[in-house]
């Protein structure tokens, strides 16, 4: 039996196909989110990669900001539930999840069985999110995927505000105009993101293992800054951008099992 999880966020669309609730057949991300060509493209691409199409799916579960705009989905659930499911599936020792997505930062506390004890999200503010990193990368003229390299070269990270993307952008511009090295500014940007994420994590109570997921987790500089800010080891999830879609595919499988049991 195949089930699909599709996670349509603000900045990207992700999909995972599972066989029998255990084996990942295919999983991929397209860097275009809700309201764009992203959802359609990710479905086309995963069909091409897996050789399976929507008709082969026993159940499709949607999550992410765009979850309510996907007519092919049988059900939709929140990304908090899906990330928790996906990360716990990968690593049952996880107790705290930090998820940094395009426009959200979330901290999720899990119990020993993977149930959600508590969660916090950032309020209506882009500080500390993937969008914040995109804005900074643009101002600094450094591709997002190269920011980690700069980060690890920094000897003296600059101070960058963690309260507001607009203020932080102005700070970065004035740091640039003062001649501060880009690696120090980038490290400062990553510590700014880390401060925001760790404040949320402290609210739910940090218990090991702590796992980082979401698109920003692909940036090793962000993971390093969070680890230092937390003062505790941090594990980066496998395919961190896909954990929400993976959780959705797992929950889709559970839905089918429930249906079969009640049939």
């Amino acid at each position: 039996m195949y089930t699909m999880g599709i996670d349509v966020g603000s900045a990207s669309s992700k999909a995972v196909i599972l066989r029998d609730g255990k084996e990942v057949v295919a999983g991929l991300a397209v860097q275009a989110g809700t309201g764009s060509s992203g959802p359609g493209r990710v479905l086309e691409e995963i069909a091409a990669t897996s050789g399976l199409d929507l008709k082969d799916m026993a159940f499709i579960l949607a999550t992410g900001y765009g979850r309510t705009a996907l007519p092919m989905a049988d059900k939709q659930m929140s990304e908090i539930t899906c990330h928790a499911k996906g990360v716990f599936f990968q690593d049952p020792s996880v107790r705290t999840i930090i998820d940094i997505g395009g426009q959200d930062v979330k901290a999720i506390a899990l119990d020993d069985r993977g149930g959600i004890r508590q969660f916090y999200m950032n309020d209506k503010c882009a500080a500390g999110t993937g969008r914040f990193l995109e804005v900074m990368a643009r101002v600094l003229e450094v591709p997002l995927e190269e920011m980690a390299e700069y980060h690890f070269r920094s000897k003296n990270p600059a101070q960058v505000s963690s309260t507001c993307t607009v203020f932080a952008e102005s700070e970065v511009i004035s740091l640039l105009s003062r001649g501060t090295a880009k690696e120090d500014i980038i490290a400062g940007v990553h510590f700014s993101v880390a401060a925001k994420a760790c404040a949320l994590a402290q609210r739910v109570g940090v218990r090991r293992e702590v796992v980082l997921c979401g698109g920003a987790a692909k940036n090793g500089g962000v993971a390093d800054a969070i680890e230092k800010e937390l003062g505790a080891p941090l594990v980066v999830a496998q395919n961190p951008q896909l954990t929400g879609a993976l959780g959705a595919a797992l929950l889709a499988y559970e839905e089918m099992m429930r249906k079969e049991r009640s049939a």
């Binding site: 900001y65 659930m77 929140s78 908090i80 539930t81 959200d104 959600i116 309020d123």
Partner: peptide, 14 residues
Amino acid sequence: FEQLHTRLQSLVET
């Protein structure tokens, strides 16, 4: 209310 929707839905689901 999309963010609030996510939070409230997550509460219901948990």
